[in-house]
């Protein structure tokens, strides 16, 4: 019996390297991550890649699949492969460490640069603030809060590729949820931070982040919201 096989090209190396082709069983309903794991266990034990939860929660396993950034644990081979071609490489816009693994340090540094931390306005001894789930701001937070930090939007973004200073859609999406958090103590400081060079105004609304976000978030809409907020601040004279 001839088994149904699939040829897969996988990136080997660092910034310089090459694609190696592997022949893997083309099982039904297998994911891209299953394919990579099969290669690592059966053909190439030295193949480096990242994963953890395998169910789309942790955001570790993002890779570039046929040129598009994806969460590989929830991407089925049958849905991705067209005309029998499957090419897997590390995420774009981040330094390549080994094979399918990228250094995500610059990505997370941008979260820091976008003031990604919550700044409390009260202490643990004060009563909890009451935020209505129906309020406009709370709903804006809800729309952006489920980010799993996978880096897909960052890898998809043209402006990130073109401008080293740009904070990127993931970090700015975080800023947007904080800017709408009624409990945050320093919205003004946050808006000043993301108005610097490489901040929210660098976004040109290409919408690649919206196209590729695996959990269906809309970072571009959040960034547009930040642009409106900062313009209001600018016109009022609150913003430097």
């Amino acid at each position: 019996m001839v088994e149904n096989m699939l040829d897969v090209e996988i990136w080997r190396g660092k910034e310089t390297g090459r694609f190696e082709t592997y022949r893997v069983p083309n099982g039904s309903s297998q994911t891209i991550l299953d394919v990579v794991t099969w290669v690592q266990r059966n053909v190439e034990p030295a193949l480096a890649y990242r994963f953890a939860c395998r169910v789309g929660m942790c955001g570790s396993c993002a890779m570039t699949v046929n040129g598009r950034p994806r969460w590989t644990c929830r991407s089925h081979v049958s849905k991705v492969v067209k005309s029998g071609r499957l090419r897997i490489e590390p995420l774009y816009n981040m330094p390549r460490i080994k094979d399918l693994v990228v250094d995500m340090t610059p990505f997370f540094e941008k979260w820091q640069a976008a003031r990604g931390q919550f700044k409390p306005s009260i202490t643990r001894f004060d009563p909890m603030e009451r935020i209505s789930p129906d309020s406009m701001r709370r709903r804006a937070v809800d729309a952006g809060i489920e980010c799993i930090n996978c880096g897909v939007c960052h890898a998809a973004c043209d402006v990130v590729a073109w401008n080293n200073d740009y904070l990127g859609p993931a970090a700015l999406n975080r800023s947007w949820t904080l800017a709408n958090d009624e409990r945050d103590a320093d919205r003004g400081g946050l808006l000043s931070t993301i108005s610097r060079s490489g901040g929210c105004h660098s976004c040109h609304t290409h919408g690649s982040c919206v196209e590729d976000c695996p959990v269906g978030l809309n970072p571009a809409a959040g960034i547009a919201g930040l642009k409106r907020m900062t313009l209001t601040g600018l016109l009022r004279g609150d913003l430097g």
Binding site: S197, G199, S202
Partner: peptide
């Protein structure tokens, strides 16, 4: 600043 340039552009 970028914010001002953005405002002028729009």
């Amino acid at each position: 600043t970028d914010a001002r340039l953005y405002l002028l552009q729009r």
